[in-house]
Amino acid sequence: MSNEELKSLAASCPHFYWKLFQSTFLISAFTVGGGFVIIPLLRAKYVDEYGWLNDKDTLNLVSIAQSMPGIVAVNASIILGYRMAGIRGALTALSATILPPLFTLSLIACAYDWFASNQYVRYLLKGMQCGATALIVNVSIDLLQKQLKKKMLLPLAIIAGTFLANFCFEVNIMLLIIFDGLLGLLFMRSREYGK
């Protein structure tokens, strides 16, 4: 959606802020195992279900969230909210992101020893972690397939190089982001790459 369309969306969609709050709340409550799990969740909600964003928007906002200090999930929710509905949207999304941990951890703090050593809690979390793995694998396959279809050398080289550097050589993510951003700045200004 263009900036203008997004602006009118906040005004025209019934219960827009409630929808934004509820979806970000659920995403935060179900983020298991680290920041990148939010990508399949964001995509399922905002691309597939609501149609508020497309894949490129999602990747753009995660790129920005990843390239600034702080926690990726929090950064992403602020940027998403701002993108959808300005400062009010950002505040809505941010509060929805920090409320679930506040609730769950208040409960857990009362029964910490029970929670940390409980076998059943561990089973439940193990299951959720497998589900999250399926989500992240699925989104990786989709995005890779899309990129492969475009048959453009530079983005594919960045994917391969960044993957190898991060997964095999454990290069710091921040360094990779700076390096790839610079590559983009120098060699990828053409609109072709954004299609």
């Binding site: 680290g34 990747l59 390239s67 694998v137 990786s140 995005l143 960045i158 960044t162 790839d180 060699f187």
Partner: peptide, 19 residues
């Protein structure tokens, strides 16, 4: 536009690596 064009594939690689 260039920076974002460079970062999108990087994020795809990081997602796959996390996967």
């Amino acid at each position: 536009r260039g920076i974002l064009n460079g970062l999108r594939p990087a994020v795809i690689a990081l997602i796959a690596s996390a996967g």
